[in-house]
């Protein structure tokens, strides 16, 4: 498994647990889960580009 699929799996699993435990209604769980997933993946991509630019 390469790094990016690992990031996607981590974000998926963690977002699912966060959504179920931090929200009450199914609709808000889905919205919060998507929000957390995007933040996880977006932060990983942003940090990757930052490290790439620093290393140059």
């Amino acid at each position: 498994m390469t790094y990016f699929p690992a990031v996607l799996l981590f974000a998926l699993f963690a977002s699912t647990v966060f959504a179920i435990t931090q929200r009450n209604t199914p609709r808000s769980m889905i919205r919060y889960g998507i929000y957390c997933f995007v933040l996880f993946v977006g932060a990983a991509i942003a940090a990757s580009w930052l490290m790439f630019l620093i290393a140059r």
Binding site: M1, L9, F10, L12, F13, A14, T16
Partner: peptide, 17 residues
């Protein structure tokens, strides 16, 4: 079910890696 799948899945991926 979703919690079990997520937690067991994350543990299994960790072991697989």
């Amino acid at each position: 079910l979703l919690l079990a799948a997520s937690i067991v899945g994350m543990f299994a991926v960790g072991v697989a890696l």
